[in-house]
Amino acid sequence: MPLLRPNDLVRLVSPASRPDPAGIERRAKILRDWGLRVEVAPHAFDQLSYLAGSDDDRLSDLTDALLDPKVRAVFATRVGKGSYRILHRLPFEAVARDPKPVVGFSDITALHLALWRECRSIGVHGALTGDAEDRLSLIAARSLRTVLMEDGPFNVEVKQALASFELTTSGRARGRLIGGNLEMIATTSGWALPSLRGAILLIESAGLAIGQFDRILTMLMRAGHLNGVAGIAIGHVHGTPPNPPLDAIVLLRQHLSELNVPILGGLPIGHDADASSIVIGMMTEIDADHGTLIQRPEEMTTYDMR
């Protein structure tokens, strides 16, 4: 079933870094054109160093949006850094009584993971991403609207031109899609990262130095956080300069091959103006032989959307 319907109220909040107000207004217009009613949280454009205001104010905006029964989805205005600073203070028990999707990616992965772990509340790994002119890409907009407002099933097909396509193996796997940004998966490990047993692990990355990239994968593997995953879906892997003979793809292959599960790379998910949206927490099937990732909204249970 669709997550949102025309005339639903959504709220734009800034749990991490400060957005550009003009860009957010352009994105809000897109949502209004879809028939949604849009509010902007009071502190969305505050600034404190690299953050969109103080922790208390960002937490207040996010909590108010999650608990307001009139609000049916929460959109992160941008990513950046900072949502991990406030997620442990969320009133998870109250949120669980009326969970609603949080839309975002990158740093917002921390919220997705914590909300799934504590509330079984699904999230949308997607965003009002901007193109070179800071406008919402038509491709990204189409994908986001499909996930939010259309009946399924919907699928994401791989792009062989993406570097992560080289990691594709063979076979099929099915499970809840859990994950997102690799750095946030590591940041939440041990305190907000849910169990990945039986899950399809989603990985995307941007801007990690090669040594940092390797350290993160080593920690996740050696600490056992990835034990029991059913399969792995890999999106964009950007901004990790190679240090021959090592690069991000080589490191992913070295570490993830130990898991001996199907891997589907080349997914247009993550840091890209034309990125596809996908639902975190939804039952998902990956088919590495045919290069597809499929989600079926009709398989969402009442428990998912309490």
Rank of each mutant, 00 (worst) to 15 (best):
E133A: 15
L162D: 08
L111V: 12
S14T: 14
I216S: 00
L217N: 01
R89W: 07
R97T: 15
D68Y: 06
L251G: 01
V74A: 09
A65C: 09
L208D: 11
K100P: 00
P2K: 10
I86S: 01
A132T: 10
V124E: 01
Q254R: 15
T240K: 05
E204R: 00
H255V: 07
L193T: 09
A52E: 06
A233H: 04
M282N: 07
D64W: 05
G130M: 03
N243H: 10
D98R: 13
M219E: 15
D20L: 11
L48C: 09
M149V: 10
D55V: 03
P91R: 08
R222Y: 09
V10H: 04
Y50T: 04
M219H: 14
R135E: 12
R253E: 13
M282P: 07
L3G: 04
M1C: 09
I278T: 10
H88E: 14
V147F: 08
V229Y: 02
L62N: 00
A273M: 13
N7A: 14
G266H: 04
G235V: 02
F75Q: 00
E133Q: 14
L138S: 13
R97S: 13
G175F: 07
A16S: 15
R58V: 09
V147R: 05
G190P: 13
S257D: 14
G123K: 05
G179R: 08
A22G: 04
R89H: 14
L48N: 12
T77H: 08
G228P: 07
A110V: 02
V79C: 13
I185E: 04
R145L: 02
L62Y: 03
E118L: 08
L226V: 09
I178K: 01
D134A: 09
L162W: 09
R197N: 07
I30G: 00
C119Y: 01
A44I: 11
V261C: 06
V38K: 12
G207I: 09
G179V: 07
W191E: 12
V102G: 00
R85M: 02
L3H: 06
P99A: 11
L251Y: 06
L90V: 03
G23L: 04
L293I: 12
M221W: 05
H236V: 07
H112R: 08
L226I: 11
T218Y: 08
N243E: 12
R215Q: 13
L62H: 02
G190S: 14
I216F: 09
K81N: 01
R5V: 11
D287W: 05
S276I: 00
M300D: 04
